[in-house]
């Protein structure tokens, strides 16, 4: 298992480094031959070192005789996807429909989704957290939040 995963990580690192190197750096013309004036030199060095580490991972995975995994077991990717989606929706909601609506919906929704379903407690905590955060930011710190849709 470990061998398999480390092989994959190594391959991804190699691929990503090569991709970044070829796409993201400014073209260096003849003028920028010195290290000091070459904007691509330092990122290039980092990417090469990353590739060496990636190769190292692959090599150690191939040479390793133990099959034990040091990757966390029991991760539930589907739940992760759902959680990330919920957080993304909240952030988008915060941006597009404003702090109040998004927060008043998000806290109960996430809590419900995670299996905590005591209506009174949830409602109470939602209201307190929402208004407390709003008060601290807008009234105490004078930082306007995106209060309402606009």
């Amino acid at each position: 298992m470990k061998r398999f995963i480390d092989l994959w990580i190594g391959a991804v690192v190699l691929l990503l480094a090569a991709l970044l190197y070829t796409t993201g750096l400014p073209k260096t013309d003849g003028m920028a031959t010195s290290i000091a004036m070459n904007p691509a030199w330092y990122p290039w060095l980092l990417l090469v070192m990353a590739m060496i580490c990636g190769l190292g991972l692959i090599a150690s995975a191939l040479l390793s005789r133990t099959g034990s995994s040091n990757v966390s077991a029991g991760v539930r990717p589907a739940r992760m996807g759902a959680g990330l989606l919920a957080i993304c929706l909240y952030v988008a909601g915060f941006w597009f429909v404003g702090y109040w609506a998004a927060t008043l919906l998000f806290i109960p929704a996430l809590s419900w989704g995670l299996g905590h379903r005591k209506p009174v407690e949830v409602a109470l905590v939602t209201l307190i957290v929402t208004s407390l955060v709003w008060l601290v930011f807008t009234q105490l710190l004078h930082i306007p939040l995106r209060d309402w849709p606009f």
Partner: peptide, 11 residues
């Protein structure tokens, strides 16, 4: 809760 609600409404 009441206090924050009052402030909230005032706001």
């Amino acid at each position: 809760f009441k206090r924050s609600l009052r402030t909230l409404i005032a706001g």
